[in-house]
Amino acid sequence: MTEIEGLILSAPSRRTVLAAVAAGTAAGLMRPALSFAAAAAPRASSYPAKAFIQHSQDATLQAMFGTSSVTASADVKMDAPDIAENGAVVPVSFDANAPKVTAAAILALDNPFVMACAYKIPEGTSPAIASRIKLGKTTKVVSVVQSGGKLMSASKQVKVTLGGCG
């Protein structure tokens, strides 16, 4: 038992979101979208399908970026838990301190397919993205960032444990 200082009530952001959802007024919240023609559907043809069916880091990077040469760099910061609360929802984020970042990818090396997600980052968009991914088991998670054509990365081992009761 190592109780930590209590966290009273909820984070303000949760309450903002809740209030907005409840009121149904906040920008863009809860609009059923199918009938909404505000933005055209993205082109599925741009999907790098091959990169998503590989079983190794090298093959994935090769399919995604055309090279598997990657350098671990302290300029890529990555946030992921030591132990995942639940493998189905693991918050992972990266933040690159590098010029001319054009793309990024998050890999989970021991997942059935290594590639979890990738991003094309245009000029003006910050090379820092947070998302939630699934991990099938304990694995090394790698954030790869393409900067000036070169790949740099950060990685972290994330433990996925069984539930208590089996």
Binding site: F52, A88, T125, S131
Partner: peptide
Amino acid sequence: LTGYWGPAVSKNPFIKF
């Protein structure tokens, strides 16, 4: 931003950028 997602992105995906 363009995101390319695979089956390992969580249900009801969240993204922040």
